[in-house]
Every structure is written in C-alpha cells, then in structure tokens.
Design a protein around this nucleic acid. Structure first.
Lengths: 244, 244
DNA sequence: CCAAAAGTGTTGAAGTTACACCCATGC
DNA sequence: GCATGGGTGTAACTTCAACACTTTTGG
C-alpha cells in the first residue's frame, strides 16, 4: 500500500474527523470520501467515510482537523468547530475497517480516539477533489448516507443534532448560503435543517428584524414568476439571541 | 515515587479531566485536588489540579472519567457530561508540571490529549476524600481558584461558560440542590451561576409554572423571619425549553 | 390568461418585565 | 417592636402563531 503520509510524524493514538455540511438550495449534504480499497481486487470498493486521519505529533487538534481535511479533499479556509470526542474501545473493530487499517496504518492495532469537528460551507464555493487515501470526495445528500466506516455514522448523527441546536444561536446561514440569496432560499435552508415548515410571513419578519441580512437592489431575472429580491448577510452582525 | 495505579494498563496518550461543580447555598465551588509534590522537600507543595488521569487501554472515555474521579476523590454515582477535548501540544510543558509527570508517569514525555467532563452535584451529598495521587481533595470557591496544573485553568473556564449556557436548558438544579430547598435558595443558585440578579416574583412564577418543582407541606423552622416553604424537584420532569 | 413563487398586515394569545407592600417569626 | 427574609398581583409591553390575498413575471 502506498505511503500516503509522512508516517514518522503521526501520533498513532489520536485522530480527527470532519463533518462538513453543505447546502445546494434544496438539500443538506455532507462531504464524504471513498477510501481506497484495502485489496487490489477489482470488485472491491472502498468504504465511505468522513474525512479524517491521525494527528501529527506536534500539531494542535484544530490545526490537525484543517490539515486532514485539506489533504483528503483539498478544502481549506473554513472554520471548524470541535463538537465531541469518540473513544469507544470497539470503534475500529469491524472486519472491513480492520483490513483497511492494516493496509494503511503503521500501528494498525492501536486504539485510536478521535476528536470530531464540524463546519458549514457554501456548496458552490467548495469543489472537493480527492487526494491522500481518498479515492473520491463527494457531497452526499444527508438522507442518502449509507453505512460508513468505523463509528462515522454515530459521529454524523451527533453532528446533525448539534447543527440543529446551533442554528438558532449562530448565524449559521452565513456559512451555508451563497453571497446573494433570496428569502425563500434562506427559508428553505432552515426548513431542511430543522426538518419543519416555517411560516413565510413570520420567517421574513423575524429575520429582517434581526438585522442579520441586508436587502440589495438587485432582483432575480429570467424566472417565470415575480422576481425575488436578493439579500446578503450583514458582516457587521455579530451574534443574535435565538433569531429563528 | 509510589506506583499509584496499575501502570501497565494505562493508555499514556489520552487522559480525562473532571470539572465537578458544587453549590453550598452561597457559593459555586469546584472540586480540586492537591497533587502530591514531586519532591520530598518539606517546603514543596503540590499543585492544585482538576481530578484527572490517563485512561486505561480498553476503557470507554465515559467510564474512565467516572473511574478517575472515584480513584482520586471517592466521588461516585454521578452523571458526567463530556464537553470538550484539549490537545495543545504545550499543555504539559510548564516546568513544575514536567517535574510532576516525571515523578509519576511511565512515559512522562508523552504528548497527552485530555477529554474533559463536567458535572453538578449537591455539596452536602458528596464529601470528597483524597486517594491515589491526590494529597487533598477539596471544594474551592470558584472565585478563589488560583493557578492550576497543566491547562486546567483553561478547562475550568470553558466548563463554566458551558454551565452558564446549559443552565437555561436543563434542570441543572436537580443536581446541585439538596433534596428539599426553598425558592430563595434555588434563586440564589441561578443568580450565582448566571452572575445576575433576578426578580423574585418573576422567578417564582416562572419556575413554578414550569412544573419542575413540587411544593412540600414542610416549612423552615427556627428562622427569625417568616418560615419559607420547602420544595423538591419533580422526578417525572424530563426536559424544559428554556425555563429561566 | 395561466402557472408559479414573491410579497405583504392583522389579530389574539402568551410571555416578559417592572414594580411595592404585608406577613410570620425570633429575639 | 423591630429586623429579617417570605410571599404575593397587576399593568404595559413584547413576542409569537395563525392566517389569505394580490403582484409580477414567463410562457
């Protein structure tokens, strides 16, 4: 198996995993990689997994998360928030995971605890390209995520529940929306993440009152209905008490 | 230096630290240990620290937190909530910390990342007694905490800020208050944690309406003012949306 | 002219804040 | 009888939820 990293400097006991959420106007997506399969058999497919890897020996956890994400998917310049640490002693014990570890890790039998991070990004701004041990890096609809490697399904679930809680507190849309957007577009984001329907008039009133967005003069063009006004986020805006 | 633990089974790369908050009707306190000093010099005093230690090789993180707390302070049967993980590569590099590690750890130079837990307890129910490498285990007023070992001041700060946030969401008082308490007593807890003053009438109305507490027939005795009614928490109560 | 989504106000209910006085007890 | 903290109600205000019709555009 290829030596994808400078093995000598890695800390074999601690890893980071990144849960990157994106939004494409209709669906909430999560960034997954397909690992290179651990055998050369043509029929073998690699497991899908969250981008993650061992930290380096002298590296801060936050830095490790950024580096690993970049190494596997080429995404950079995003804010990653640590949300939980997973250390179940059996988290690496599925047979297919063991095979993969034996093919790629210097100490495949080591117990690894993993520190998980999440982020929200504008899909349009980030086109992941696989590298390192990632054979592919793709956005997967949150409802279509299958079995992931290791305990990554558990990590993803936890990230989702935290995203739902945080959406009320932080201007999360800042990160997920494009530069310009319509109010219906923003409302769709909230509805999808919260998995509810929101009242159009109440949503608009509340979000405009919060001061988090600013109307632009520009409007939609070429749509076969009344064109909607564009808005952008107000960068001066710092933090709101529960604005939706 | 004495061999305080079964060293062979410890994972030298990962530790847990516990931030245990208690409330004694007037002050918010945190449980600290005094480590045995790393020299035999009589003048040497051990550093104050959060109770914490390395995890065992096959132990879940949550279990490790419970075990370590019990080993150092003899507190048990409390719910510990994981809240953050600290992995700054320099977190163990203060000279006095290095001396202590060299005296007590099998691999004193190992980089250790630590998973932090917090809990809230009724002071009266828990009388910590030191054991393991703890020379003392005491409740320290939150405003009187001095320099702690390692990065424990940072960990404590983070725990405090999370406690403030969570107080609105969970019936945190459940854990911090004695079996029976008066409304003024409970109000004091909220005021101290939130560091604000609350209106007596509004506080009472809101907390009674929430259903989280039940009035008892019993009242205070032997006080030189109108005796206050006692309340207790309603154990059927599960979760409230922001009840203060 | 039809389909599609944009945009807009009001009302009743619920919740929040601010505020001041009498009560029961011990000494 | 006085000091101490317990206990109580109301009015103004703000926030929240529910709800339906007109507007502008493309085809």
């Amino acid at each position: 198996m290829a030596d994808f990293q400078t093995i000598s400097k890695l800390n074999p006991h601690v890893s980071v995993d990144c849960v990157i959420f994106g939004f494409d106007n209709n669906d909430l997506k999560v960034l997954l990689i397909e690992q290179f399969p651990s055998t050369n058999s043509v029929s073998d497919r690699g497991s899908m997994a969250l981008p993650g890897n061992l930290i380096k020996e002298d590296e801060d956890l936050d830095d490790a998360a950024k580096r690993v994400l970049k190494e596997l998917t080429n995404l950079s310049d995003l804010y990653l928030e640590q949300f939980a640490t997973f250390g179940n002693p059996n988290r690496l014990s599925k047979p297919e995971d063991r095979r993969w570890l034996e093919a790629t890790r210097e100490i495949p039998e080591a117990r690894v605890i993993t520190v998980a991070y999440y982020s929200l990004v504008r899909l349009e701004r980030y086109s992941p390209t696989p590298s390192g041990f990632a054979k592919n890096a793709t956005w997967v609809n949150i409802n279509e995520v299958g079995n992931l490697a290791f305990d990554h399904n558990i990590i993803l679930e936890k990230a989702l529940s935290i995203l739902k809680k945080d959406l009320h507190k932080i201007p999360a849309g800042f990160e997920l929306m494009p530069e310009k957007f319509t109010l219906s577009h923003l409302q769709r984001l909230y509805e999808i993440i919260l998995n509810t329907e929101l009242d159009k008039r109440n949503f608009r009133r509340k979000i405009i009152k919060s001061g988090i967005i600013k109307p632009l003069k520009e409007k939609q063009e070429g749509v076969n209905h009344k064109p909607a006004r564009f808005f952008r986020f107000n960068k001066k805006y710092q933090e709101a008490p529960d604005f939706i």
